[in-house]
Write a protein that binds this DNA or RNA. Structure first.
Lengths: 208, 208
DNA sequence: ATAAATTATGACTGACAAGTCCAGTCGATG
DNA sequence: CATCGACTGGACTTGTCAGTCATAATTTAT
C-alpha cells in the first residue's frame, strides 16, 4: 500500500514536469509564430516529444494556448497585488506597479504581442470571459486603492475602476509602442517611464 | 482619338469600381474572420467574383489585406487633421479629435480589432514601416498643437510626441475596452467619454 | 522473469486553402 | 457579322497541419 503511493506521487510530479516542458516549448513557439502559424510539430520538436504525446497532456492546440494566455494574465494580476500590497503613498504604489509591469512586458515582449493579438482573435468567438475576468482583476486592485484616496478627497470623484483602467492602459500602451519603435529592447529605463506616466496620470499635462 | 479615349476612361472607372467592390467585400470578411481565417473564396463569393478574378486586381491575400489596413489608418489620420484644423482652444481640439475617433471606432468596431491584431501579427515580420509611419502621423498632428502650448507655458515641458502618443493611446484603449465589455455597441456616449479622457489628460486624477 | 498497464511515437488521414491555369464568355470595334 | 482580347469562373495543383491510431517502448505489478 505504502509502496504504491509514493511512486504514484513521484509519477504525478514527473507528469507535471513534462507538462511544464510542453508549456514552456509552446510559449516559445507561440511567441515567435503566433497562434495560427505555430504548429504542434514544432512545439513537439522543441519539447522533445512526438506530436502524439502532446495529446496525452492537452486536448487541443486551442486548450494549450488558452492555458498559456491565462497563466500570463495570472502573473500580471500577481504583480499588481504585490506592488500595491507593499504600501506607501498611492502614487508610489502606482509607480511601483508601473515599473514592474513595464519590466514584465520587457522580459516577455514577444509573448505579450501574442496575447494582445489573441485577445482580439477570440473576440468574436466563444467565452473570452476567463480573459476579461483577469483583466478586470488587475484594474480592481488599482481601483480599490483609488477609492480610498477618493474618500480622502485626494482624487477626483469618478468611477475608480474607470480611472484604474486608464492607468493600466497607459502602461500597456507604453510597453507596446516601445517594442514597435525600439528594435532591440536595449536599455529601456522602466523607472523613468513609470514615473513619467504616473505623474501624468495624477497631475495631467497642463501646468497648474 | 477622342472616341477611343472616352471608352478607355470608362473602362478605367469600371475597373476601379470593381476593385472597390472587392475591397469592400474583403473588409467585411476580414472583419468577421480575421486575416488567417478569412478565405479568398469567401471574399470572392461576397464580392460576386470568382477567386481567380481577385488576382487580376491584387497580387496576394497579403497585399489585399495591407491595402485595407493602410486605408483605415489613412482615414484616422484624416480625422485627426480635420479635428485639429478647426481651431479653438487646444483642449477643445483634442476633445473634438477624441469624439470623432471614438465614433469612428464605434462604426468600424470589428475592423479595428482586426487591425490591432494584425499590427501585432506583422510585428516580427517584414516592414510594418507603412503602419508605424501612419500611427506617428496621427500623433504628430496632436504633438504640434501641444508644442505650441508648451511654448506658451501652458503645458508641462516634455516631449510633445510622447504626450501625444499617450493621448492617442487613451482614446484607443477606451474604444477597445468598450467593445469588449459592452456587447452590442448600444448607446455609447462618445461625447462623455471624450470629455472625461480629455480632462484626465490635461488635469490629471489628483485634486488640485 | 513475465505479464499487465501505462506512456510515447510518428506515419497517416482528411480537411482546407492559396495560388494557377485555361477554356469559355461577351462586349467593343471595324 | 466577324474578329479580337480582356475578363471570368472554377477545377486543379500543391502544400500545410490538426488530430488519430496502431505499434513500440517503458514502467509497474505479480
Amino acid at each position: 500500500m505504502r509502496q504504491t503511493q509514493i511512486p504514484l506521487q513521484r509519477k504525478k510530479r514527473e507528469r507535471q514536469a513534462k507538462r511544464a516542458e510542453i508549456l514552456s516549448a509552446a510559449r516559445k513557439v507561440f511567441a515567435t509564430k503566433g497562434y495560427e502559424r505555430a504548429t504542434l510539430d514544432e512545439i513537439a520538436e522543441l519539447a522533445e516529444f512526438a506530436k502524439g504525446t502532446l495529446y496525452n497532456y492537452f486536448d487541443s492546440k486551442e486548450t494549450l494556448f488558452r492555458e498559456i494566455v491565462e497563466s500570463i494574465l495570472d502573473e500580471m494580476i500577481h504583480i499588481a497585488e504585490q506592488a500595491l500590497a507593499e504600501g506607501g503613498p498611492v502614487r508610489d504604489q502606482f509607480c511601483r506597479y508601473a515599473v514592474r509591469t513595464l519590466e514584465y512586458y520587457r522580459t516577455n515582449e514577444d509573448l505579450l504581442h501574442i496575447l494582445v493579438r489573441e485577445i482580439h482573435r477570440t473576440h468574436m468567438k466563444e467565452d473570452l470571459s476567463a480573459i476579461i475576468k483577469r483583466v478586470h482583476a488587475i484594474a480592481s486592485v488599482l481601483a480599490s486603492a483609488l477609492r480610498r484616496e477618493m474618500n480622502k478627497r485626494l482624487i477626483i470623484k469618478d468611477d475608480p475602476a474607470e480611472l484604474a483602467h486608464v492607468f493600466v492602459g497607459m502602461i500597456h500602451n507604453r510597453a507596446m509602442r516601445r517594442s514597435f519603435t525600439l528594435p532591440g529592447l536595449t536599455a529601456v529605463d522602466c523607472e523613468a517611464e513609470a514615473t513619467f506616466l504616473t505623474r501624468l496620470f495624477f497631475d495631467g499635462a497642463a501646468r497648474s
